[in-house]
Write a protein that binds this DNA or RNA. Structure first.
Lengths: 221, 221
DNA sequence: ACCTGAACACCGTTCAAGT
DNA sequence: ACCTGAACACCGTTCAAGT
């Protein structure tokens, strides 16, 4: 029947946004952000680099789509039926954001370098602001709290992922820290060195998260 | 009259670490991080790009030195004679960190991409941890609080500087946010849109800072 | 000792031309 | 409509050779 007048005549496209996006995320996990070049991505897709620009106008657009995809599901983290209080729901959302960023190599760097405005990112903001507004916080308090926890989470995960893949294997700057502290200046750093040089990032994150939630609690009288 | 056997014979060096570092910081302020290439920096110094590698082994080393230099003076922010309480001293240090990052274009991006271990950076950590330990916080609390406030400040300033220089002039994603919100989904985002789309970064920062300090206060019973 | 010149191995992006 | 081939204008880094 309409085999010749249909749209999309010619050969079926070997490329599309979805396959490009998925392959880019795979390549990110395998090789990291620095190795994610348009040429290498094209290679992995069996295509020339120029062909990618039919689906993403710039590399930055591709990175934005990757960041948005990374947040898939985070908005569903605050259990809707669990009758926990607002701070538990907020904590669940924020932990889900960190987990989503950690799920991809250099996830925080990708996210920090873009400003996704898709349903996953907006959905996360919507849910967290909703939890806070329903807890009695004002519009501006809720909005500013969102920014604060998001900035903390991205900043923290940036550090965490930078410490994990230092290009080589050893913690590059732990040595420099030990050296400087051993010289005698910095008595307070010396006393807290075990924690400063430690790698228990989850405990560090939970500490910061608790600070923020306690701070919010102090706000409601 | 040792005019011929002295070290440093031959022509005096046109280049050195200090001049390279200072010119790099100037170029950063003029053109931003993306335009700060070894070739352009060499041009500004009147030299070939390869010559830079006698003073900085890699571009990353240069960026690390730039980050360290940016924090010059921040450790002196907590007035030593002012008899204010610990939270005022801590706040002053943290505000000084933000101010230092804001003082250079893309300062937060430079700082986030490096791990300086010089006296300015270590001095800042030493002072903040000192203030907290003397306020009665434990070693691990003080160390984790440092990480939390530093990560928040870097994350926040990253956002702030990304919003200021979007390559062009208009707030690039404010439009996308308005569009998405206007569609009807995201009622909570719609209600808080004025604050979310606002650009009062100092107020936002102070809100987060207060949250963290209140959270710390809640920690000491 | 310090810098040049030139190369190596890459980048993101564009666009005529093919199919 | 979709992709190739080839180019444009760059990168960071290395290193023999000059002075």
């Amino acid at each position: 029947m309409n085999s010749s007048s249909s749209p999309n005549r010619g050969r079926p496209a070997r490329l599309n946004q979805e396959r490009t996006l998925q392959t880019a995320l795979d390549l990110l996990n395998e090789s990291g952000l620095d190795a994610l070049t348009m040429r290498r991505l094209a290679d992995a897709l069996g295509v020339q680099a120029g062909a990618l620009y039919r689906y993403f106008a710039t590399k930055h657009d591709l990175l934005t789509a990757m960041a948005e995809r990374m947040l898939d599901g985070v908005a569903d983290a605050a259990g809707p039926t669990t009758d926990s209080d607002w701070s538990e729901k907020a904590a669940d959302l924020i932990r889900a954001l960190r987990t989503a960023l950690l799920a991809h190599r250099d996830g925080a760097r990708v996210f920090a370098g873009t400003h996704p405005t898709g349903p996953n990112t907006l959905g996360f903001s919507e849910r967290l602001i909703g939890v806070l507004r329903e807890a009695g916080f004002s519009d501006s308090e809720a909005a500013r709290a969102l920014y604060t926890v998001a900035n903390f989470t991205v900043g923290h995960t940036l550090e965490e992922q930078a410490a994990h893949y230092p290009g080589d294997e050893e913690p590059t700057d732990a040595g420099a820290l030990h050296e400087a502290v051993a010289a005698g200046a910095y008595p307070h750093l010396a006393a807290t060195l075990p924690v400063l040089a430690g790698t228990d990032f989850t405990t560090n994150f939970e500490f910061g998260l608790r600070l923020l939630l306690d701070g919010l609690r102090a706000l409601q009288h």
